[in-house]
């Protein structure tokens, strides 16, 4: 702690948290819909279902049809979370427990591979390329680099400076582009679950 790069990462993290909070509050500021029709089901049960079974391949045709992308996405997210975990230890000046050093390396490097795979898919699939804005590429490159360098820096400590620079950039960018789905994923899925729970569609009868 106390090193300039560590402070930069912490400042960027503070910015990310603050800006995300403001973005989330602004979205909340649009207000709640007053529902006057009597409910046919349970909103809470709908939310629970939306975060659990509704995300599994059995309930999601899009997952069944795109299992490699689904797997790449899962690994990418796991690797990113692992990289943030390693970052927390580094910033705290605490050594990573020996038992998790290799799992963390594997998770972060695999996550980076997942990110690269998704980046390649985005670049090579016509309708995905057409959907994309620069943000889609910037967000992926920053996150993939962050995960890759987290794993690489644990093998080659001289890469840690580069990793912390990328971490700072990622945190600065986080609330600006699509990575803000790190909070809006949860709120959106909750709203969707509540909607279908209220209407009696979730939990699914099929």
């Amino acid at each position: 702690m106390g090193q300039p790069l560590h402070l930069a990462v912490l400042a960027a993290a503070a910015w990310a948290v603050g800006a995300l909070a403001v973005t989330w509050l602004r979205a909340r500021g649009f207000g709640r819909r007053v529902l006057l029709a009597p409910a046919a089901g349970d909103r809470s049960a709908g939310v629970c279902y939306a975060f659990t079974r509704a995300m599994l391949p059995q309930a999601k045709e899009s997952v069944r049809m795109h299992l490699p992308s689904y797997a790449a996405g899962m690994v990418f997210h796991l690797g990113t979370f692992a990289a943030f975990g390693v970052l927390a230890f580094v910033l705290a000046g605490v050594d990573l427990p020996a038992a998790v050093v290799w799992p963390a390396r594997i998770a972060t490097l695999a996550g980076a591979l997942g990110g690269l795979a998704l980046l390649a898919k985005r670049a090579l699939t016509p309708h995905l390329r057409g959907l994309s804005s620069p943000d889609d590429f910037v967000a992926n490159l920053l996150t993939t680099s962050f995960a890759a360098l987290a794993g690489a820096a644990s093998l080659r400590p001289q890469l840690q400076t580069a990793w912390l620079v990328v971490a700072t950039m990622l945190l600065l960018y986080l609330p600006i582009g699509k990575i803000r789905h790190c909070i809006f994923f949860f709120s959106s899925r909750a709203y969707l679950g509540a909607f279908f729970g209220y209407r009696g569609t979730f939990p699914s009868a099929s």
Binding site: T23, R26, A27, R28, G29, F30, G31, R32, R33, E61, S62, V63, M65, H66, S69, Y70, G73, R122, T125, H127, L128, L131, S132, S133, D136, K178, R180, H181, F184, F185, S187, S188, Y191, F195
Partner: peptide, 29 residues
């Protein structure tokens, strides 16, 4: 727009996995 729609409008990651769920896309990709 309410909070739910504002959340939705902030959330899309352009993964494109929704494509085949749409009958329009299925018949004219």
């Amino acid at each position: 727009l309410r909070a739910a729609e504002a959340s939705y409008l902030n959330a899309c990651v352009h993964c494109g996995l929704c494509a085949e769920s749409c009958h329009y896309f299925r018949m004219e990709p």
